[in-house]
Amino acid sequence: MKTVTLEIDGKKIEAKGGMTLLEAARELGIEIPTLCYQEQLAPYGACRLCSVEIIKGERSRVVAACVYPVEEGLIVKTDSPRVVSIRRMLIEFMLAVAPRTKVIEDLAARYGVEGTRFEAEANLCILCGLCVRYCAEVKKANAIGFVGRGISRQVAFLPEIASKTCMSCRECFSLCPTAKIPRETDGVCFLDLTVDDFLSRQSK
């Protein structure tokens, strides 16, 4: 792949084609916050914390740095007011879902978010998918997965598989940014969050 030249926060960089904006920024020592990103996993682009503003000619738009590839002549702003207000709102969303968790409180402190305007619906899971993706991509066990869609989407263990594989692994415990997994599961299933629980709740 040939190299391309672009500008991130006023700094010029020559990057290898196919690289993401996040990788290029990190090479420059520019820190973009992430949550669902993990070097050993395929980029996922779900938490959008790494949103940055890109300018191409006259047009500017917001993209996720973890999945957007570098492009010749691109101007990238990783800390513009538009980007910061997006991150602040995302943090408010996460504070409602996962209050009093270190990772999110740290983010809130960094962006000066003092609290959330939204009602707490604390179930701790922000659906970053690290557990599901790690279990599938690295461990190839597929003991945990997503179920449902939209605002009903959640993660759930599959007891049939988890009972055979999880007790000896537990590697997702430390990956979980809100510590939901170590707090709420024995590794075989969430206390009330297996696939079967999900289904029985749906049919009642």
Binding site: R48, M89, F93, I126, R149, G150, R153
Partner: peptide, 22 residues
């Protein structure tokens, strides 16, 4: 409609629509 039909993957759409609906 949209909060049910969203795939629920990304936070701004899922949580944003949830809060707007609230």
């Amino acid at each position: 409609f949209l909060s049910e039909e969203s795939c629920g993957k990304c936070i701004p759409c899922r949580e944003g629509l949830r809060q707007m609906l609230n």
